[in-house]
Every structure is written in structure tokens, then in C-alpha cells.
């Protein structure tokens, strides 16, 4: 899995690419941990290029959600492919995570911090 992180005003956007399964889970956990340790506790996972997720990948996301909450941060997901969205709905994790159609909608929900900063 490739993970690139872009710092925005409101949160750090993690662009994930590839399969989110047992093999790739440790990379994501490590990257999130690094950010939390640096006080970067608001995280948006852009999943547009995640083409496969299974129960191990879901487990990693749940673990990440709990770690971010423990750090008093906030986590959201955006741009899920239809197949990935279906897996979230089957497992009802769609009720647990904040899921947005795209980054723009997530930014808006995270409080328009960028807009407030520039106004």
C-alpha cells in the first residue's frame, strides 16, 4: 500500500493506494501513530484508490479510530469506491465512521477551518 500525507488547515489527509488488508495494515497503523505522537490528531483518510478491503483492513481502521479518539482527535473517511462502501454498509461500520463523498465535503464538516483562516 502507498500512503502519502498532505497537511491541510483542518487535518492531515492520508491518500491510501492499493489493498487494505493484513499485510498493509501495519504501514497505516505506523503512519497514524507517528502523526498522533506529533500532536497531529485530526486525520482524513482518502480511500479513492483503495481497491480492496477485507476484515483485517476494517479491523485496522477500527483500531485507528479508537487511537485517534483516545488522542482527542477526529478521523473521517472520504471517496470510498462502491465496493468498499458496500463492505462498510454490510458491517455497519458506516454508522461508526464519518464518511464523506469527497475531501471538500469532509473539509466543510470539519468546521471550515481553512475558509475561516483565509477570510
Amino acid at each position: 500500500m502507498e500512503i502519502t500525507v498532505k497537511a491541510e488547515e483542518a487535518f492531515h489527509v492520508f491518500h491510501l493506494k492499493g489493498r487494505l488488508d493484513l499485510t498493509s495494515s501495519s504501514e497505516l497503523k505506523e503512519k497514524v501513530k507517528e502523526h498522533l505522537e506529533q500532536g497531529k490528531v485530526n486525520i482524513l483518510l482518502n480511500m479513492a484508490q483503495v481497491d480492496f478491503i477485507n476484515s483485517s483492513g476494517l479491523g485496522t481502521l477500527v483500531s485507528t479510530l479508537k487511537e485517534v479518539r483516545t488522542a482527542n482527535g477526529r478521523i473521517a473517511l472520504c471517496s470510498l469506491a462502491p465496493y468498499v462502501q458496500e463492505i462498510f454498509e454490510i458491517t455497519q461500520l458506516s454508522h461508526i465512521f464519518d464518511i464523506f463523498p469527497g475531501e471538500k465535503e469532509a473539509f466543510a464538516a470539519f468546521g471550515q477551518k481553512k475558509a475561516a483562516h483565509t477570510s
Partner: peptide, 14 residues
């Protein structure tokens, strides 16, 4: 719902 494991067979059945 917030457990990290235990979803595999549920997903398959669906």
C-alpha cells in the same frame, strides 16, 4: 461493533 476482529464470516455470509 468496535472490536477489531470477528467480521470475516459475517462479510462472507452477506
Amino acid at each position: 461493533i468496535l472490536k477489531e476482529a470477528g467480521r470475516g464470516i459475517f462479510i462472507v455470509r452477506s
